[in-house]
Amino acid sequence: MDLTVIQAAIPKFVAGFKLTLWMSFTGILGSLIVGLLCSLVQYFKVPVISKVFTGYVELARNTPLLIQLFFLYYAFPVIGWKMSAETCGFVGLTFLGGSYMAEAFSGGFAGIAPNQIDAGKAIGMNQFQLARYVVFPQGLSLSVPALAANVIFLIKETSIFSVIAIPELTNTALDLIGIYYRSNEYLLMLVIAYAIILIPLSIILTILERRVRYGSFGN
């Protein structure tokens, strides 16, 4: 273990760290939007579109991100759709994450006790009011644990961006190992970098989950 090696690599790792954070943030945001949209369409059983979205969710959820990225990065340019590696990463992560988030939201909406729906109906609510005042507020808090797990999962998935040469953390470390052949130092830095992102985040998410659970359960 050589400290000078570590020191010298810090700027590169900081850059990779920032890129991992940024790509995670944008990808997760995109996933949440796509996921919420899908789950709403599925909840209201919008004809045709809901079938299409269900197809998308199953396709995206049941295939590896790596192949999805290969399609975007290597195959699409052949038919003239060329995107930068970063754009491919964003689109790929959103494509994959959207399906996971859709499942999380739908799971929450489906988890509401039938009695709650009855109680809403009994005071004369229509479909929309039921959704607005009963299904969504309760369903969203029920879906928080799954959403939180997806956030962690998607951040970890950004490590796969290294295959299309996006200089995020993993790619940075592998590059450095390739050039300088110092695997110990760079791998240690890589592990620490992920720990810095994911340990505090998973603690925060656990606290959030506990809060929300307290708020939504115990009729």
Binding site: A119, G120, I123, G124, V134, G218, N219
Partner: peptide
């Protein structure tokens, strides 16, 4: 009609949120 017919259930079913 349900606005004119009130109903109370065995399991209370207040909205927990």
């Amino acid at each position: 009609l349900r606005q004119k017919i009130g109903m109370v259930f065995q399991s209370y079913d207040l909205f927990p949120n």
